[in-house]
Design a protein around this nucleic acid. Structure first.
Length: 780
DNA sequence: GGGGGAAGGACCA
DNA sequence: TTCCTGGTCCTTCCCCC
């Protein structure tokens, strides 16, 4: 076990966390010792190095604590944990899903390839994209010197003095990435992009269709010469042949167009691809090569340019039954190759056996080191030591380890997940002047406000991130009662947080090298951010229950132009604060007075109101449920949705077999659970309380359920809105899904309302007695 | 003791 | 001379009910 500040096990005399990570294509067989020596010599004594040393010591202390804990584990504890692990293993085994064909695509050295396309002179030079401070990627010539992504440029220059560093140009990379994504969409329209150069696809459905395709649909024309040489005519009309063999270690052997070509009727070369997964992927890679090559087909050196790009964009693909394995597989035949792991249990187990834990996405240098201290380096070790891991690590962690050791991963690619946070940060030279710091803080707030407005988001928690000149990072957060988005609102919080930090180190100056600003958006589901028109927050005596909702759904751009400047003062964090003297607020959904001035409470009321209103209006209508008017009776749908309309009722949940957690009620109904499984419904004010019970997993789903692709840890849940079986049995997740679905429903419905004028925000209909509100409903 | 916020950190591309 | 940026998730600590 390593206990000191340096890697005592290796005896190399340097920080192991700073050593070269040569786990990258094109970096095999490097002289690690020599490279590490240069890295250490360049870093030693620097503030960065000192900070890394501190971090390494912290990890070592963590390991020491873990080993101490391990020493106290009894046989009894171990056997109990073993039983728990075995039970979970068999549960997981039962739920193993090998039916999907998941593909992970990774384009190696992507930025470098695009830059080489635009400047062919770089083709035979070691080059990297980034700056003297940090590199984003490097080409294969540079990797031979130990130069890789996430390495500072000045160190890279020491490793490779002839290195050419090209500044990043994300617009260019985005353009090429968009072309690649068009190809992805043909194989899986719901593919999941992870970054500009990486994506997951589920090609199961494509393969099913593909089996019935005629050959013509699987035939693609060859556009460029990919045989090993490129011929190009220069301006003078002299034909020169560019020999490319030996220019790059990437090249030809795994090229997707390496199989024999046929000729079509017009005499052009074509390639016919088969119907299996490997062939579909080979075709996809072929099309990416062809398509990205064409992007360079302008100007005098088009053939060379397109040729270079097709050579340098190395499309590495992994094909496996789940995302975790596909990711590992894409790394298998790098660069520019593909690897398929067969969809059978034994193949998966064999594959995982000797796999180093570090190859798994999610296991980084710290986890690797901690596992290493326990003698665990491969996935099979992981499986053997699960009982111990269950005692030493958190539940989340050891569950993750168990999944890995069994070769399990997600089989459902979820796109468009809800955004959790948004941030912006900047690194700079040492900054100690207060004026500068506050000015930068404001700038960051401006940037963040713009980003938030682009996505029509708001956030409730504002975080200030600071890194001082010693690389120590601090975050300071403040949660507001309501969501904010404007520069002024963000700055009002951020400047206070910054001031506190400045005061804390006073009279010393706060010497910064990074400042960042981050905000956590409020939940998307049915969340209402209220931009009150002036004088609309009035004490309202009208409590009549209006049935229609009068709202104007503003678009993102509408919203930006209607920010309420009156409230955006630095003395007020929140633009929706009620006016003084107001002791109640009027709900814009039910138009009843809510006896609170607490915006959190009020928002919760609105959420509930919308939820129930929508459930009765949108959902029940859309799923064709009838409402039984006789009190106490219920209507059962085939979806597992059960509806009661009653003033008072005691419903035995055991009789109807429902989970009491999944329930929604009308806001004025009082619902309580009696004696574990009896639901009591009553209301003082409303004679028709509607109770909507969402049953986990409809007994008779209306739609054909999707193939079972989830872990078997409980019954499947069917969303009553979209009717789709959800890949979770976690009720929180499920509820979030239902909320999102409902949100879409209401927006859809609002969008279809003829009376809603999105541009002029006309007054509500004359019959409407309630106050006039404007709303922004957050989607996406 | 549980829930939730704050702070820090691991990990990823 | 010089070690990023933006995002997610997890853990730990602490306070409050």
């Amino acid at each position: 076990m390593a206990t000191g500040g340096t890697s005592s096990s290796s005896g190399e005399g340097f920080l192991s966390r700073m050593a070269l990570n040569d786990n990258k294509a094109g970096m095999e067989g490097l002289n690690r010792d020599k490279i590490n020596k240069i890295i250490m010599e360049s870093s030693k004594g620097s503030r960065f190095y000192e900070n890394e040393l501190k971090k390494e010591q912290q990890v070592n202390q963590r390991i020491e604590r873990m080993m101490l804990q391990k020493a106290h584990i009894t046989e009894q504890q171990l056997s109990k944990a073993q039983a728990q692990v075995e039970k979970m293993t068999s549960d997981l085994e039962r739920g193993r899903d090998l039916s999907r064909v998941i593909v992970h695509v990774d384009m190696d050295a992507f930025y470098a390839a695009v830059e080489t396309r635009d400047c062919p002179d770089l083709m035979d030079k070691p080059m990297a994209v980034g700056s003297m401070s940090m590199l984003s990627t490097s080409n294969y010539h540079a990797r031979k010197f130990g130069v890789r992504a996430a390495m500072p440029g000045f160190i890279a220059k020491k490793l490779c003095p002839n290195l050419v560093i090209v500044p990043t140009n994300f617009d260019k990379y985005r353009a090429v990435s968009a072309e690649v994504r068009e190809v992805f969409a043909d194989y899986d329209p719901h593919f999941l992009p992870m970054s500009l150069d990486e994506a997951y696809l589920d090609i199961s459905d494509h393969l099913e269709q593909r089996r019935g395709w005629p050959e013509a649909l699987r035939t693609h024309r060859l556009h460029t010469n990919n045989t090993g040489t490129a011929r190009v005519e220069d301006h003078g009309g002299l034909q020169e042949t560019v020999e490319v063999e030996g220019l790059s270690p990437v090249l030809f052997e795994n090229s997707p167009s390496s199989s024999p070509c046929l000729q079509d009727a017009a005499g052009g070369e074509v390639e016919v691809f088969g119907t299996c997964a490997e062939e579909a992927v080979r075709e996809m890679r072929f099309r990416i090569e062809q398509k990205t090559s064409l992007t360079a087909s302008a100007g005098e050196r088009d053939a060379v340019c397109s040729f270079i790009l097709s050579m340098y964009v190395c499309v590495c693909v992994g094909i496996a039954p789940n995302m975790m394995l596909a990711k590992v597989c894409s790394d298998k035949n790098k660069p520019n190759g593909q690897y398929r792991l067969p969809s059978n249990r034994q193949a998966v187990i064999d594959f995982i056996q000797d796999l180093p834990v570090r190859k798994i996405s999610g296991i980084g240098k710290v986890t690797e080191k901690m596992l290493g201290a326990l003698g665990i380096t491969s996935c099979s070790h992981l499986g053997q030591e699960m009982a111990l891991l269950a005692l030493l690590f958190s539940e989340t962690s050891w569950h993750h380890f168990l999944h890995i050791s069994m070769g399990l991963g997600s089989t459902h690619i979820e796109r468009d997940g809800e955004r959790k946070s948004m941030s912006t940060e900047r690194t700079f030279g040492e900054m100690g002047a207060l004026e500068e710091q506050f000015s930068l803080c404001k700038e960051l707030c401006q940037d963040l406000a713009q980003d938030l407005q682009k996505e029509a988001l708001k956030g409730k928690t504002v975080t200030l991130k600071l890194k001082n000149v010693n690389f120590e990072v601090k975050t300071r957060a403040w949660t507001l009662p309501c969501a904010v988005a404007t520069t002024e609102e963000l700055f009002a919080v951020a400047k206070d947080l910054l001031k506190t930090e400045i005061d804390n180190v006073s009279p010393q100056p706060l010497r910064l090298r990074l400042m960042g600003n981050l905000t956590l958006p409020s939940p998307v589901c049915l969340n209402v951010v209220s931009h009150w028109q002036e004088n609309t927050l009035i004490s309202n005596t009208n409590t009549s229950a209006e049935t229609d909702i009068s709202m104007s759904a503003l678009t993102a751009s509408d919203k930006m132009t209607h920010e309420p400047s009156a409230h955006a003062s630095t003395s007020s964090y929140c633009s929706t604060e009620p006016e003084s003297g107001t002791d109640s607020l009027t709900c814009p959904v039910c138009f009843r007075e809510v006896n609170t001035t607490e915006l959190t409470v009020f928002n919760r009321h609105i959420d509930q109101c919308l939820s129930s209103k929508l459930l009765s209006r949108c959902v029940l209508d859309s799923v064709g449920l009838r409402l039984d008017s006789s009190a106490g009776d219920h209507t059962e749908s085939t979806t597992g949705l059960l509806l009661y309309e009653t003033s008072t009722a005691n419903i035995s949940l055991s009789t109807v077999g429902l989970n009491p957690v999944c329930l929604n009620t009308c806001p004025n109904g009082d619902v309580s659970i009696h004696r574990a499984n009896t639901l009591k419904v009553s209301s003082q004010s409303d004679p028709h309380v509607r109770v909507c019970l969402l049953s986990p997993g409809g007994p008779r789903p209306m739609t054909t359920p999707k193939p079972e692709s989830r872990d078997h840890r409980g019954p499947a849940l069917t969303c009553p809105v979209c009717q789709e079986t959800q890949d979770t049995n976690d009720l929180t997740l499920f509820n979030r899904h239902v909320d999102l679905c409902l949100n879409q429903e209401v927006l859809h419905e609002l969008g279809g309302l003829a009376s809603v004028d999105r541009t002029t925000h006309t007054a509500p209909p004359a019959a409407h007695k309630g106050p006039c509100f404007r709303y922004v409903l957050f989607t996406e």
